[in-house]
Amino acid sequence: MIHSMDVSELKITAELANLDLTGEDLASLGNEVEKILDYFSSMMEADTAGLAAGKAGSAANRLRPDVRTPGDADALLENAPELEGRFIVIPNVL
């Protein structure tokens, strides 16, 4: 049995994932995460000696020619929440 996630680990994980967890989330998600990690621990019983992590049977060496294919940049800017000229703006109060 490996250790499950305690609250401090959950907080570090949430920070890495850029999620703010409120007290309520912290409790409910924390429980659920713990339950699933406990369940994952069954993998620890499997014998993985001699097994290598492979990659799904995709062929190697897929390349595309170095050709410019102009896109519609303006359409993308229309989806931006805030613009300043052609720049996308985000708040940054120092």
Binding site: R68, T69, P70, G71, A73, L76, R86
Partner: peptide, 18 residues
């Protein structure tokens, strides 16, 4: 990883695609 132009000094956000 995409066909956008690789060039320095263009107007902002012109050489972009999804």
């Amino acid at each position: 990883f995409c066909g956008c132009t690789n060039r320095f000094g263009d107007e902002p956000n012109t050489n972009v695609c999804p």
